[in-house]
Write a protein that binds this DNA or RNA. Structure first.
Length: 351
DNA sequence: CCTCAAATGTAAATTACATCA
DNA sequence: GTTGATGTAATTTACATTTGA
């Protein structure tokens, strides 16, 4: 619901901004405004959901083109060589595997996070015995496929896939994976149980996420080993983490758009006031504010001073006159036809 | 090369569980 | 003890891209 609200906010903002920018462009003939604003906004919007898959756009880091100071604490791009530096071993306390008898550190581990043990006394943070197969990188691909099939309800295909594997060992590992998933469910008595990650686990995951927001299979299984979790759990955590990051970013974008909208509203108000002033000033004389007003060209160039926001009068550099203003958010408006570059203020021409 | 289907990875949406006030 | 809100792990679905025949 939150995300929906945000999207509505953003869409509303876009509509408002588009209307305002269009109006501004009509008077200023400066597409730069619309281009620069909507270039970034549309990216942000398109990647914010609507059921659309915008992976292509998302390949680049979000909001890089916003040219705005957003939360830059986001993840760095995935670097393949991450594994080259040996991962820090998390000082995890021993976790008892279901196959193991309680070790000495077992109670300590559980003391850290009681949430690992669910109401039925089942430790949700434990790796099932049979999931050892996932330690093997080469077992990852078939297991993924099997997971995918299981997830998509194509269980009938799983047997076929298992039997289709060239290596009998690999096949065995794949089937083990399936059975481990099944036994997982049977073991706990219901279809879905939730573990609660410990602080240490979360911290390491966060740390890893800061380095790269996506994991390759090797990184995934390595991290899973370190955390004593299943690779799938690490994968899920990263998926959810990316989703959270994106949601936060959307909220930031939304806030920004609101401010941008307010700023443009104010700018619009001010410009309208300027129009009124100019009209009063030049009663009977030509006016150049907008073609919509159907006024002839003036004799002099009118420039908006960015500091005092007053009109400065000077000699026209060419026959075509222009009005240039810079608004509060740093967007420049110019009425010069075909001008798409930002209109730079000319201090000398101003007050 | 081109085509096509299967494999794969991810985003988005959703569900469901655990916790807390 | 119950309930509603909240956070988040886990699942499902759809789609884009890659890969191999």
């Amino acid at each position: 619901m939150q995300i929906t609200d945000n999207r509505e906010h953003i869409l509303l903002g876009v509509q408002t901004l588009r209307a305002m920018a269009t109006a501004a462009c009509r008077t200023s003939s400066s597409p730069s405004v619309e281009l620069s604003i909507f270039g970034c906004i549309s990216n942000s919007i398109s990647s914010s959901g609507n059921g659309m898959d915008n992976r292509t756009a998302n390949r680049s880091e979000p909001s890089e083109d916003l040219n705005l100071v957003l939360s830059s604490s986001g993840p760095k791009p995935l670097i393949e060589s991450t594994l080259e530096s040996p991962p820090k071993q998390l000082d995890l306390l021993p976790v008892r595997s279901p196959c193991q008898k309680p070790a000495e550190g077992y109670s300590r581990w559980n003391a850290i996070s009681d949430a690992h043990v669910n109401s039925k006394g089942i430790d949700m943070n434990q790796i099932p015995c049979s999931s050892e197969s996932e330690d093997e990188d080469e077992a990852e691909a078939p297991s993924l496929k099997l997971r995918s099939l299981a997830g998509e309800g194509k269980r009938s295909e799983m047997a076929a896939l298992g039997s289709g594997m060239a290596d009998p060992g690999e096949r065995e590992r794949g089937l083990l994976e399936v059975s481990s998933r099944n036994s997982d469910e049977e073991e706990s008595g219901s279809a879905r149980k939730k573990l609660r990650l410990s602080k240490e686990q979360s911290a390491l995951l966060e740390e890893s996420f800061k380095e790269h927001s996506t994991l390759n299979p090797k990184q995934k299984s390595l991290l899973a080993k370190q955390l004593n979790l299943r690779p799938r759990q690490v994968e899920v955590w990263f998926q959810n983490r990316r989703a959270r990051t994106k949601l936060k970013q959307t909220e930031v974008d939304c806030e920004l758009l609101k401010r941008c909208c307010e700023s443009l509203t104010e700018e619009n108000r001010r410009l309208q006031k300027e129009v009124a002033e100019l009209r009063a000033l030049k009663v009977g004389a030509p006016c150049v504010i907008s073609r919509d007003f159907c006024m002839p060209l003036p004799a002099a160039t009118l420039t908006m001073c960015p500091s005092c926001e007053r009109l400065a009068h000077g000699q026209p550099p060419s026959t075509s006159a222009s009005i240039t203003t810079t608004n509060a958010v740093g967007l420049s408006f110019s009425n010069k036809p075909g001008s798409i570059r930002p209109a730079l203020p000319s201090p000398s021409a101003a007050c």
